[in-house]
Every structure is written in C-alpha cells, then in structure tokens.
Nucleic acid binder design. Sequence first.
DNA 1: AAGATTCGGTACGCTAACGTACCACCAGTA
DNA 2: TACTGGTGGTACGTTAGCGTACCGAATCTT
Lengths: 244, 244
Amino acid sequence: MPDSTVTANSRNQLLTSLLKLDQERLLPHLHQIDLLQGDVIYSAGDDIEVVYFPETTVVALLSTLEDGSTTEVGLIGREGMVGLSVFLGGAITPERAVVQVNGSALKMAAADLAQELRRGSPLQVQLLRYTRSFLALVTQSVICSQHHSLEARFARWLMMMRDYSGSNTLPLTHEMVAGMIGTRRAGVSMATRALRERGLIASSRGMIEIVDGEGLANAACECYAIIREEFAQLHNSQMNSRPT
Amino acid sequence: MPDSTVTANSRNQLLTSLLKLDQERLLPHLHQIDLLQGDVIYSAGDDIEVVYFPETTVVALLSTLEDGSTTEVGLIGREGMVGLSVFLGGAITPERAVVQVNGSALKMAAADLAQELRRGSPLQVQLLRYTRSFLALVTQSVICSQHHSLEARFARWLMMMRDYSGSNTLPLTHEMVAGMIGTRRAGVSMATRALRERGLIASSRGMIEIVDGEGLANAACECYAIIREEFAQLHNSQMNSRPT
DNA sequence: AAGATTCGGTACGCTAACGTACCACCAGTA
DNA sequence: TACTGGTGGTACGTTAGCGTACCGAATCTT
C-alpha cells in the first residue's frame, strides 16, 4: 500500500481530526508499522526519537519501582499518541511503553513532530485535548488504586482493554495482568476465578474472554464509567473537528 | 502596592520565566489575592472562570469517590498554575482544588489566559513543560498509592509540603492529612506516633513539625526523590528561560 | 467559668491482599 | 516419546490497613 493513502485511511483519531491540508503535510513523515504484544517501545529513561499514533494497537505505560514491581499508569489507543513527552517539551520518557495488543500504528520521528508543532499546526490543539484526557485517566487511577478492590480494578481493566482493542477475547496471562494492575500473579488467578464464577468472563491458558460485558462493567469500580465518559467527550471533540 | 509591580515581583515561576515584554502584556489581567487554608478554589465539575498562579500559597487537587472518600492527586505551588484544564482545552475541572497553605497568588480570568495563548505567547511553552512535570507527579502517585506503606507515603507528603511551603511547621490536623493521603484519621495518628518515636517529627494539636528533614526523607518512599528531581529540572528550565 | 466542639490517642475485631510455595498441566522442543 | 519451561490453581501463615468506637485533652464559645 502506497504511503499516500496512509493518513487518509488512518484510524488514529488525532490524525483524522485534522484538515486534509494538514494531513497531507504530515504524510511524508508517517510510516505504518505493525506492533506485537510484548514489544517494548520505550524503556524508562529513553530518549524519545520516534512517536507512535496507534491505529489498532494498544500500548500500556508502565511505571516501575526500585524493587521491580510495576503498575500500569495509562493505556493508549487510537485516540492518542505514544510519546506525549515530546509534545510536552521533554526529550526523555519516565515510563516504559509496552505493546498490549497486536496491531498497526503510524510512526513519526520526534524531530518531525516538533517541527510540525513549531509551525503552529492544528495538531497542537488536538494534542492538548488528548493530554487533558490522558491526565484525567492517570488521575483517576491514583484514587482507584488507593481505594478499590483488586477484583473491581481487574474488572475495570478488562473492560478498558475491551474498549481499546475492540475484542472480547484478550490474549493475556495472569502474570501479565498482575504486572498491569500492580498485584501478585496469584491475586489475579483468584480474581479470575471469582469473575468466572459470577459468569462474567471465561478463561483458558493465556486467554481471557469477556462473556458478559454489561455485568463486568457493573463489577468494575466507578472509575470505569468516569474514564469512559472522559474519552467519549474526547472522541466527540475529535470527530467534530474532523474534515467532512 | 500598585498593580504595575505585580508581575515583576511575582514569585510564580511560570510568570517570571517570561520576557519583560510578555509579562507587561499580562499585567493588566493579573490580580493579587491572599488565599487561606481550606478555601475551595474549584469544586468538582465547576466551570473554570479564573486561574491562579501561586506565589507563596500551596493548593491541593483532590479526587473524590462516590462513597465520599478523597485522595490528593497533586500539589500546586509557585512552579505552576491552578486550572491547567483551561490550558488543555477544557472548560471544567474534574477535581476539587483546596488551599493547603496560606499565601499569595495571582489570579487571572480564564478567558484572558485563553486569549493570551491564542496569540502564541511563550507562556504556552512554559505551560507545556509544567504540564509534563505535573503529569509525572500524578503518574508517580499511581504506583505510590499502590505499593507504598501509609507511613512512607505520609513521610513523602510531609516532605513535599515542606518543600512547597518552605516551612518545617505545618498547621495540619490528622483529619486533613487523612483526606490527602487517602486513609483513615486513625491511620494518620498511628503514623504520626511512629515518625515521632523515630525522632523525625514533632506534633501538637493541629500542628506537625518536621524535626529531622533528612531522616524524614529517608523514611519517605523513593517517590519523593523522583518527584523532587522532576521539579528540580522544571525549575532549572524555568530559570534558564528567565529574562536577565 | 461552664459547656460544646474539635482533635488526637488508642483499642478491637476484621478482611483484603501479601509473600511464598507446591503441584498439576499444557505446549512446545529435543 | 520424554523433557522442559511457562502457566494457572490453590493453600498457608502473616500483615497492613480498615471501620468503628470510646475517651480524654485542648480549644472555642458564650
């Protein structure tokens, strides 16, 4: 597929919200790439040289402590960009970015993004909005990890993964999930059993399937609805500024 | 004191990092105000009509759950601005903002800020940088509240309050602290006793005093150093772009 | 000075989650 | 086919922190 169709067909909402004129200027700098689950896009402390606009892939930002324990602090899908730090005026990223769901993204050199922003691109406004939503997501995670039970957080996380990936079938080991929601592997196993016994999910080796989405949403903490609402608003504003 | 000296003398680092030219354009829109501990600047869901540039005051952003429990998600002092949402393209704030430390701030109508930004002010770059640091603060809080003990988080919080307020003597009730770090009042009382027995703090009714700052920093979780480093970098970049 | 209110110290039982460990099993590989 | 590493189920003792409650002391009010 020729590069010239990349942006027009892109499913990344930051890009599609731009005018044709602006999209075409970005085109030569964008390159499609397929990302695989487990790919490490950035390690903590890396210089960011490339940013990514997910189309169908989903990327997690992970924060790591001295003792090696990790927690996911944010998910990024087609509504956003991986490498926000560049936009926010920093060269390095404080978190690890790991691909959660196989899929496509468009990549772009950080320098090209910086130049595009310097010329006063409308992308600036879109990125500001996105930053707001992303900040809301992280903010909610603070109080969530403080006050909500493992099971409720797990349910929320599964629902969010479903929304981001568009699939009820998630190829995940308990170990991976544990690293995301910041608990032990054994804890995830127990939560999985609890949710399965309530008829909300099914699971097999390396695979979790959402059987009853509505029920799972109810099992999730309030944070799910709050975040969903925030990103629904972002989506609307992105679509509203989209060229016809 | 006449308004004309407000900006030049301001101790808000976002403002002092600007060129005289830009400062003078902002001047007519800035008004000094004294804030008192407990003042609620925004309630959750409020339309933001005014933003604040703290000079000596410290403001906390609080997130609240359905059951009424709260947790602080960020502190804002003279390095930043209260009302970031305006900058990020939103009109409403998702969190409550409450004054923690008596002091001065400069306030400005949100509309005036928006206009200033529309004209391509250098303030934009400063606010982007600040957003980056603030996001780093919130991000760290996610993993912190997930993995660190009450006592360590309490120690970190005290140290941050010391840094922000510039005073070792903090007028705080246990109840207030509990609302900040997201626990029970009784938990704060116990943590206070533990830290006092270690000779790190002293306390009396409505007052906590840091006796051994270095020791308290050691008692705090690693998050303290990480956040401190992030804001030290912000401070440097703010000072470097400051007019001579 | 008396009364009311806020604040802090402390205690009790309880539960979620931890760290760890062991085992069965499934899926590749030799 | 047997071996091996990754995965998930489950269990045990431990603990941090919860919810709640009660009381005395400090402070404010009148």
